[in-house]
C-alpha cells in the first residue's frame, strides 16, 4: 500500500511536470523550478554520505562541478552531442571519482575527513583551471541547440530532464535508506567499530555511499552548463555549492530520505522568491539565517520536529 502510494506520487509528479510545460508560457517558472530541483538533488546526494552514513563532506561542490565539466568535455570533444548522453556519462564519471576518493579518504574520521574532501574539491578545481581543452580559467561558452524536439523551448526540456533526475535521486535515496544497505549505513553512523564487529561490511558500504553521492552530484551538475550557457571554474567550484548542499538536509532532517526533499523545496523556494522580489545578495543572508535558526532551534530538521510532534501526540492519547 505504502509502496504503491510512493510510486503513484513519483509518476504523478512527473506527469504534472510534463503537463506544466504544455500549459505555462512564462519561462521564469522553469528557470526557478530548475534551480530548486538542482538544489534538492545536491541535498539528497550529500545526505547519502553525510546523513545516512555520518561522514560530513565539504567537497560535494567538486563533484557537482565535475559533472558540469564532463558535459563541457563531451561538448568540445564530440562536437555537441545530445545533452542526454552527458547526463548519462557524468554520473558514471563522478561516481568513479567518488569511489576513488572514498577509497583514499574513508580511513579518516570526523573533521579530518571533512578537510580531506575539501582538498579533493580544490584538486579538481586546479585540474580544470589548468586544462585548456575545457576552457581553463577563462571558462567555456556553450550554445544551446536551436531546435528542440517535442518541447516549446530548450529550458522546458532542461526542466523535464532535471525533474527526471530529481525523481531518480529520490528513488535511489529512498531505496538506500530503507533497505538492508540503509541499516548498515545507520550502524556505521552510530558506531562504526560495533558495526564492523557485527559483520557489517563497512568499507564496502562506505564506498557505495561515496559512489552514489558522487554520481548524484554529477547528475545534478551535468545539465548545468546548458542551464547557464557559460561555465568557469571559480563559480562552478564555489564552496557555496557545498554549503548549500549541506544546508538542505540540515533544514529538512538528515536521518531519512524525505528530509532533503522537504529541505530542498523549502530552501529553494525561499531563495528563488527572495532573489526575484528583493535581491540576490539578501538571498544568501537569508540562507544563513534559516540555517542558524534550524541548527539552534530544531537540530533534527523538519522531519525531527514532525517526529517529536507525533511522539507527543501519541503520549497524549495514551
Amino acid at each position: 500500500m505504502k509502496l504503491n502510494k510512493f510510486w503513484f506520487i513519483i509518476a504523478a509528479v512527473f506527469l504534472i511536470g510534463i503537463a506544466f510545460t504544455m500549459v505555462a508560457d512564462n519561462e521564469f517558472y522553469f528557470y526557478a523550478t530548475y534551480a530548486v530541483m538542482q538544489l534538492m538533488i545536491m541535498g539528497i546526494a550529500w545526505n547519502i554520505l553525510g546523513g545516512f552514513t555520518g561522514y560530513v563532506n565539504f567537497g560535494s561542490g567538486g563533484f557537482f562541478a565535475a559533472g558540469a565539466y564532463t558535459t563541457v568535455f563531451l561538448h568540445r570533444a564530440f562536437d555537441a552531442p545530445p545533452l542526454l548522453i552527458a547526463v548519462l556519462v557524468a554520473p558514471m564519471v563522478c561516481g568513479l571519482i567518488g569511489l576513488g576518493v572514498g577509497y583514499f579518504t574513508l580511513r579518516l574520521k570526523g573533521v579530518y575527513f571533512a578537510i580531506a574532501t575539501l582538498a579533493v574539491a580544490i584538486i579538481l578545481e586546479t585540474i580544470v583551471v589548468n586544462w585548456e581543452f575545457v576552457g581553463g580559467a577563462g571558462g567555456y561558452y556553450l550554445l544551446i541547440p536551436e531546435n528542440v524536439v517535442f518541447f516549446d523551448s530548450y529550458i522546458e526540456w532542461l526542466f523535464v530532464l532535471i525533474l527526471a533526475i530529481t525523481l531518480i535521486a529520490i528513488i535511489v535515496s529512498r531505496y538506500l535508506n530503507s533497505s538492508k544497505i540503509g541499516q548498515g549505513l545507520a550502524a556505521i553512523r552510530d558506531d562504526e567499530l560495533a558495526a564492523e564487529s557485527m559483520g557489517v561490511p563497512t568499507l564496502k558500504l562506505k564506498l557505495i555511499s561515496t559512489t552514489v553521492m558522487g554520481g548524484l552530484m554529477g547528475a545534478a551538475g551535468a545539465p548545468f552548463p546548458y542551464f547557464i550557457t557559460f561555465v568557469e571554474p571559480v563559480s562552478a567550484f564555489n564552496l557555496l555549492v557545498a554549503v548549500m548542499a549541506i544546508a538542505v538536509p540540515m533544514i529538512g532532517g538528515t536521518a531519512s530520505w524525505i528530509g532533503p526533499v522537504i529541505g530542498g523545496l523549502l530552501l529553494g523556494t525561499i531563495q528563488e522568491t527572495v532573489t526575484v522580489n528583493i535581491s540576490s545578495e539578501l538571498n544568501l543572508l537569508i540562507v544563513g539565517v534559516v540555517l542558524v535558526g534550524f541548527i539552534s532551534l530544531a537540530p533534527q530538521g523538519i522531519t525531527g520536529l514532525y517526529q517529536d510532534f507525533m511522539r507527543k501526540r501519541r503520549k497524549g492519547n495514551d
Partner: peptide, 13 residues
C-alpha cells in the same frame, strides 16, 4: 550499541 536505532533494529544488525 547503535543508540539511535531501536532494540529490534540493533538485533537485526
Amino acid at each position: 550499541l547503535f543508540p539511535a536505532l531501536t532494540v529490534e533494529e540493533n538485533l537485526y544488525l
